[in-house]
C-alpha cells in the first residue's frame, strides 16, 4: 500500500490527461498527414497542378 501511495505522490496530477491529449493529437495529426498525402497523390494521378502559394499575407504562418 505504501508503494502505491508513493507512486501516486510522485505522479504530476496532469499526467493522465496530458498523455491522453498527446495520443489524440497524434492520431489527428496522422489523419491530417494521410489526408494531405492522399490528396497530393490523387492530384498527381489526375495531373492537376498543386495550388500555387497564395499572395494573401494573412494566410502565411508569420
Amino acid at each position: 500500500m505504501v508503494g502505491v501511495g508513493m507512486t501516486i505522490a510522485y505522479i504530476d496530477p496532469g499526467t493522465g490527461s496530458f498523455l491522453l491529449q498527446s495520443a489524440i493529437a497524434g492520431a489527428i495529426g496522422v489523419f491530417f498527414y494521410f489526408r494531405s498525402a492522399i490528396k497530393r497523390l490523387v492530384d498527381r494521378l489526375l495531373g492537376r497542378n498543386r495550388t500555387p502559394p497564395s499572395d494573401d499575407p494573412n494566410s502565411s504562418n508569420g
Binding site: 496530477p13 496532469g14 490527461s17 496530458f18 495529426g29
Partner: peptide, 12 residues
C-alpha cells in the same frame, strides 16, 4: 500548437 499544456489544471 496541437496540445494545450494547461489542460490538466483546467480540468482540476
Amino acid at each position: 500548437l496541437d496540445l494545450w499544456y494547461a489542460l490538466g489544471q483546467f480540468q482540476r
